[in-house]
Structures are given as C-alpha cells and as structure tokens.
Amino acid sequence: MTDNVLRPAPHSADVPELLSLLDSYRLARQSLLGALGLGRSNRDPLAEFAEHLVAALWGGGQLAESRVQANYDVVSADGEYIQVKYLANPLSDWPNEHTVRSIPGVDWYTLVVYESFSVTGVLAFPPDLTEICSDLGKRHPGQPTSLQFTRRNWWSIRDNADAYRQLGMRIWLPPFL
C-alpha cells in the first residue's frame, strides 16, 4: 500500500476566482468547437480539432459519421481509413509519450503533435511499422505493429522528414499551407 501524499494546490485562488477561470476556458472551448460545427460536444477539444485538421490536410477527407466509433476517424477522398490521435506536451519537456498501433482495416495511424498547445507536426504512419522502428533504433517487441513514440523519435522524424517519407510515412510540418 502506498502512502497518500497531499500536495498544495498550485493556484491559491478562492472559489469565485477559480470559477471565473473555468468560465474563461469554457468560452474559449465553445468558440473553438462552434467553429468546427461541434458546439454541443463534450469530447476533448484537442481530439476534435485533430480530426478536423487531419481531414483538411488529407485534401478534404470526410469525418466518420460517429465521432466515438472504434478504429477510424477520417476517410480520405481515395477511400483510405485514417485513425487520428494526438500527443500533447509542453515545449520544454515531454512527460507524455504515445504508442502508435497498427489497426486491422485501417490504412493510416495519424498522430497530431501539440507542444504548448500549438500544432508542431502531423505524422501519418502506415500499417507496417518495421522499417520505421528499425530506423529509429527501437528495441521494444512487436515492432511490425507498434511503435513506442518518444520525444527523441519526434525530433528524428521532424529533422529527417524526407527520409521517413521514403519509409512510407506522410508528414506535415508548419507552415501547413
């Protein structure tokens, strides 16, 4: 059994101030979701935005009819099924990592990378991850169908995008136009 450790609240605001901060967030969230046509959504706005961004980057892909279905989120104009996930971290360090997975019947696993709430890249992985894992020097099991994605991997792919495109990836880096 572990000891319960209490930590002080990082912000010593009183209740009215905390509720005011939440109101500011709520208004900004409603504005973003409203612009996406999802004003009544209670899903994570970063996930919602990522799906819309990937559909646009894919040249007008169509969002899946159900936003909470399994396996894919976007269908490309060419009929490719695309899973969309995101990874959010501060710019200074990455406490969060992500496992990219091949999904039967899905053509692309797309990861939107947010750093300090800005999109810093969009990576689309093909179903077979063997060569990508090998090039990244991965040592974990299951490399044909999974990739344990880290900040170092992000830097390698970002800084050598053309080499990873040659391995079958699709990569978008800012500026996205």
Rank of each mutant, 00 (worst) to 15 (best):
P8W: 13
S12V: 11
A13Y: 12
L21N: 07
Q30W: 04
S31G: 03
N42K: 13
P45T: 06
A50C: 05
A56N: 02
A56Y: 12
L57K: 07
G60H: 05
Q62M: 13
L63W: 12
L63F: 09
S66T: 08
V68S: 10
Q69V: 05
Q69M: 13
Y72H: 09
D78C: 06
V84H: 04
K85G: 04
Y86N: 03
Y86W: 14
L87V: 03
A88L: 11
N89P: 02
W94T: 01
W94Q: 00
N96E: 10
N96H: 14
V100F: 09
I103L: 13
G105S: 10
D107G: 08
Y109I: 00
V112P: 02
V113E: 03
F117P: 00
S118E: 11
L123H: 05
A124F: 09
F125W: 10
P126V: 06
P127D: 01
P127T: 06
I132N: 02
S134K: 15
D135A: 15
L136F: 08
K138M: 03
H140R: 15
Q143P: 00
P144Q: 07
P144I: 09
W154T: 00
I157Q: 03
I157P: 02
N160D: 08
R165M: 06
G168K: 11
G168F: 11
R170I: 02
W172M: 01
F176V: 03
